[in-house]
Every structure is written in C-alpha cells, then in structure tokens.
Design a protein around this nucleic acid. Structure first.
Lengths: 214, 214, 214, 214
DNA sequence: GTGTAATCGAGACGGTACGTCTCGTCTTCTG
DNA sequence: CAGAAGACGAGACGTACCGTCTCGATTACAC
C-alpha cells in the first residue's frame, strides 16, 4: 500500500530511471479486482484470476501491492475519493443522516458492496489489511462524524455527556452489520430510522422523540 | 452442522447402523479448532492443522462438517449454549444492557473472540456459513432482543413508533463493529455507554437523557 | 491365503467352535472381485467396491484374505481347478500345444484375463502376491510341462541337452507376454505357431521343421 | 512425455515464452523416481515421495508428466537411449543373442529392473502407460528384431514359413516372463539357452540342434 | 540515435492446503 | 455370536493458489 502515497510532487523530484510504471496495468488490475469481487467475492478474486483478467503478470501486481487485500482496498478507495465532504449548515441530525446515506449508497453499489465485504473478510485474518482499512478508510470518516457530533455539542444540539466515539460507532456500525451479516435490507429507510432513533436520544430535550424518528 | 439437529427422541428411535461416531474425535476437533483460531486466526486454523492437532484424520472432519467454517461455528456455539436467557423483571434498559454485556463478555473470551472474527471472515466468502451464522447464532439472539423491545413498547417504556428490527441492530451492531474492525476497546464501559445513549432516545419521556448514560 | 487351503476333511476333524464361515459370503466376494476386475481392472476393484458389490463388510474379507491380490488369486484359481490335466498318449508337441491352448483359452475368458492381468500387476509391488502366484499358479503348471518335456527326452522326441526349465519358459512366456503388453492377438493361431516353431527345434531331427509350424 | 517430442530445430526457432523449464528439476525427478523404484518398487515410489526426494513440488511433476507411470517410463528410457543398435555382419543367431543379452543386461541393472517391473505393473491398470510402453519401448525393439529375422529368411538362415511376429515374442517374452514372475534367474546362461533352443528350430537344416544350444 | 535501466508478459518454481479416496483396523448393533 | 455397517487414523491422490523467480521483449529517459 506504501507506493500508493505517491503524489504529484514526486514526479518532478526524484525521477526514477528506466521504464516508468504502466498506467494501463494499474487501472486494469483495479478494474479486474472489482469485477471479480462482484462476481464471486474474495474466493473468486484470486491473484491469479486478477492477473489473468487484467492481462497482467502476477509479478506486476506484487511489484505494487503487497497482498490481495491491498489491491481490493485501493480499488475500493478509487471509487470513493470524495464521499467525505458534508454540505455546510446542516443540523447534527441531517449531517449524520447525510453521512449514513452516503455510506449506504456506496455499499449498495454492486462493485463496492462486495469489495467492502471482501475487505472486511480479509481483515479478519490479515492484520496489515485490517490496519490499512482502519487508517485509510474508517478513521477519516470517523473523524468527520466525530467533528459533526462535537460541533453539535457546542451548539447545544447534543447533550454534553455524550461519548463521541461511541456515537460514531452507533452511527456507522448498523450499516456494516447488515452488510456483513446480510440479515436485513440496506436502504434509505434504514438510514432514516437509524439516525432518527439515535438522534432522538442524543438531543438534550427528548420530548416526543419517538415520533421524530420518521 | 447436520448432526446438531439431533434431538433427544432420535437416540432411542432410528438408531443408525454401524459404528457410531466417536465422541472423543468430535470434542478434540472442536477444541483444536478453537485453540488454533486463538493462536493465529483462520489463517492458522487450516483443516490440516486442526486434524493434526486433534489427532484425527481429515476425512473424519469432513465426514461431519462440510467446511472449516462449519467446525468453527459449532465450536463457537458449543461454548455458548444457554447465554440467551435474560433474568425476569428487568427494565428494557437493563435487559438490553444485560444482553450486550453478555455478548461482550463472550467475545472478550480469548477463544470465542477469534472464533467469531474468523466466522465473520469466512461468512464473507462462504454463503453457507453466512446462512448458518445468521440462523443459528444471530437470529435467536435477535428474537430475544426484539421481544424485550416489544414488551417495552407494551409496558410504555419504549415509544410506539420505534422500528424494532432497527433497534436490535442498534443494540448489537456496535459490538460486532469493534470486534471486526478493532478500532476501539470492547469492554463494560462501552456496553454502558452504548445502551445508555441508545435508550435515552427510546424512552417516551427523555428528560435528562444524557446523564442516564452513566 | 493360508486359510484357503481348508479342504473337506477338516470339517469333520477339528470342528471350529462358533458360527462357521459363510459359504455365501465367500462366493459373493470372489464373484464380485471377478466382475469388478472385468469392468475396470485392479483400479476399479478396490476392497471397498468388492465388499459393497458382494453385500459383505470389509472386515469379512480381511478375515479370510490378507490382501486384495489374495482375493483376486483365489477368484482366479476358482475358475481353473482342473486345467492342469493332460490327456494321455499325446506326443510332446501335442501335449505342449494342449497346455498352451488351455492357457490361452482361459486368459481369453473376459473375467480370467483381466484377473490375471491384475494379479500380475499387483505382484510387481506385492511380494506376497508374487510368491503366492508363483507357488499356487505357476509352479504346478510348470511342473506338468516340465514332466512332458522330460518324458519327451526319455522317448527320444526331444534332444537330451535341452534345458527343461528354459523350455517351459519358452512355452508359456509368449502367452503372458501378449497378455501383459497387449501388442498382439492371443488366439489359437498364436498357440499353433508358438508350439510349432518351438518344437521344430526341440526335435532331434529337424528336417523341414519350418513347414511343420502349421 | 509431451516434451520428448521436442526436436533440434525448435531450440532456435519458436522460443517458448515465460520462464523456461528447469533442467535440474527434470533430472532430479527422474533420478528420485529411479532410486525409489529400486528401494521398494512402485509402492514406495509415490508421487509425494518422488517430489520430496527430488526437492520438487508435486505440481512441477504433474506439469510435465501425466502420471507416475509416465515418469517411470521416461526415467527408464533415459538410461536406454541407444541400446537398439546391433553390430553389422552378425548371423541371425548372434544378432538375436546380442539383443537378448542387451535386454537382460539392462534389466539386471538395479535401477532399470525395478523400473521396468513397476512400469509393467502400472500398465496393467493404466491404458495410457500401456500404450506408451508399447509404442516407445517395445515397438522399436520389436521392429529391429523383426528386421533381423526377415533378413535371416532372405539369406536362407531362417525358414521361409516362419511367423516373424511370433518369433519376436519367442525371443523377448521369456526375459520379461522371468523378470515379472521372478521364478528363475535372469542371466547370460539363460540368454544362451533361450536363443540357442529357439534358433535350432528356425534354421532350415536343423541337424544336431540340441548341441547348438551351447 | 543509442545506451541503459526498469518495466512488462509469461509462466515455471518450491510450497502449502485443499477436498477426496482407499487402505486396513476398530467398534457397535442386529439378525 | 458372526457379520453388516460404517467410523476411524493414516496418508496419497491430483488441483489450485500462493509469492518468488527467471526469462525475452518493451519502453522511455539520459547521454
């Protein structure tokens, strides 16, 4: 995953000699990984299958990514660059609702959903993937949500004794839960209910909260 | 997983012919699977390793379980037989708190935690395991929690417009979330916060909710 | 293989206690072995397949025979009890021709041919089978053929300096050779040619020998 | 066995892509197979044992040979490249004696003998091995022996009515017979007797044939 | 232009684990 | 109480991927 931190400034700086890496190969690999995850999950998306599908040799993949999970992670992040922004001026409820809605929409995508499921699966047995997933996917989104909650506390929308980290878990966890276990639908109605029922308790004055859940 | 559907009456009724299955082997396999999951997760707990550790041939494992995940599931359920009961006479808050606490306690166990992580990992790529995990682990506990919420509604402790299925997700999801991503601690304080912040919104009268988070 | 030497007189003599061995089982096992050898050779005639086909448990087979080859051998011998006799008053040529013809006829049988092929195959890796095959099948027939040759020498039909053991090989070997390698037909014409061309040289006076080969 | 069809011109012409096959691995596999056959026959020379002994993975063996027998065959042929030539100017008797002697000498080799025994054993249950053994080992040697006999007929050394194919069987069969059944010695004396007793009858004038057995 | 150096594809390599098969032994229940 | 049914430990089977390696061929900058 290390090499993916390459940014523009490097281009001019320490220009490596020899043939530069192929942009085509990188794109083909990520696309192939996504397609295969979609078709049959991590079980089908073997390194060999990805290489074959992408018309690339295995060595080329290993040259740039340390593991299958790293490819999946980068492929996932690729399609997700800018979901972290929230419109300004929203209430705490609407801001969280926006974030949950964006997450659900992403995971409903027929490529992204399986990719994330596969990533979570890999993370259970690959500590490096788990770390990367936490740092590069989870943490940034948690930070934004935490900021939303904290500003809610400052503005008096949210009670002062609330544990922010726990709130963030309460906001996102149910979404991943349904993705991972697949016991129930993952749609907009769920997002409404989820944030509604959560916020009703996070408000300082919670009169008639239950009805506000819809 | 098939053999676990054996119920009492079968013992006397349709006795299978031939040598009956070895109790020793079954116990050794489940124990070995648990130990290996603890030591290095699903990556280390290969069928071959389990068989070797248990002093058993691979064929014996495959005779009774269709996959590695099925062994892990049964091994997990083995240590968990009757955790689904709740003391009578508890308030909705206390009943949910009891369940969350029991779940966290179970997952804190150095064998059960890794087993469940491994199971969830497997379930992402093995639909059969996913199904078994939902039906044999998740569903019974969800049913009990749902019953708690429903009786809370009847008793007026919980608002009438609450979506019970969503509440159940809100109760359990954050626990699995921290288990799966490992981004934060999974302890009693978390259980308190979780149920407290959730319930504060589920009560019809939510005055001073923030402080009820303990 | 030892127990198969049980003959009638034993029945009255040392009457074994307990239930006597089942004649049905023995016959069914030998028949099943023969059928399976016919169908697909030694590869198909596994102990498990033989037991199943015969409606017998594997333990029953192992109680009476030490190995698969031993079953095949006895099954083969079963259909071959009295091929060792030769009509009296034949010339050396005709006596040998009779034996070769009987052997070829036997090996042309759709059960016996594959059985013998399988036995020879097993004998290459199972010294016990090899020994039993030599002692119980090969040796008796070699003894008779040798006697034929020896009496031919006495009567002056065969030269005195002939090595009898080598002659016996020359008589039988080409038959097994074609059975084992399958490079050419195994029929009556072959028997004629074989003994004819061989005898022409074994006669003391070999004028016009070549023409006597047909 | 496929790779053995490679002929000289390919080397320079159509260079295969990818990493070329390892010469070391091929040699180690054939050597290991030979050693193991010598030590305990086909029973000991399992694919797994060969792979382990050769320091090679099973996949590498299966990449180049379809079965255990194919490895044994190529290992056998390896040590036998050009034994098919016969010195010029020999009589029919001496030419056949030369061939039988060469065959016996080869089969007396502590590696080649067991290898051929194993091959014959395998050929009884593996049609593909049987075919390869016939075509690549037996047929060429039979063709040469047949040519010897035919030129003997032309030169008047051998009777005109002789069946050449049967003669070839008579020449070689007794050698394989003793190898396969192990009932008697396989040495030079046997070769002398064998060809002597056979030729005495194949000569047009067979006076004093018995003494010609040397 | 011509080196030169890192890229690329292809695919062989030593491993490990897979899930299946048969072996020969054993254990239990049934007829 | 013999025997069928079949579970058991053992271990080979042939396959699939793993991650590494060795090739020849291909770029694209640097001289």
């Amino acid at each position: 995953v290390a090499t993916t931190t390459v940014t523009g400034d490097q281009v001019g700086a320490l220009r490596r000699r020899g043939r530069p890496r192929s942009t085509r190969a990188r794109a083909a690999i990520l696309a192939a990984a996504g397609e295969l995850m979609l078709e049959g999950g991590m079980a089908v998306a073997s390194m060999e299958a990805i290489a074959h599908r992408a018309g690339v040799s295995k060595a080329t993949i290993y040259r740039w990514w340390p593991s299958r999970g790293a490819v999946a992670l980068e492929g996932f992040l690729e399609q997700t660059r800018d979901t972290s922004e929230i419109p300004e001026g929203l209430s705490t409820h609407d801001a969280l609702r926006f974030q949950v809605g964006a997450l659900i929409e992403l995971l409903q995508d027929p490529t992204c959903g399986p990719l994330m499921r596969g990533l979570i699966g890999q993370a259970q047995s690959d500590a490096e993937i788990a770390r990367a997933l936490r740092e590069r996917w989870l943490a940034p989104r948690r930070a934004i949500a935490a900021e939303v909650v904290r500003s809610g506390i400052e503005r008096g929308e949210v009670g002062p004794d609330i544990d922010v980290a726990v709130v963030v878990d309460q906001v996102f966890a149910p979404v991943y839960h349904r993705l991972v276990f697949g016991h129930d639908r993952l749609d907009d109605g769920f997002a409404d209910r989820l944030v509604g029922q959560l916020m009703a308790g996070l408000r300082r004055d919670a009169t008639g909260n239950a009805t506000s859940a819809k």
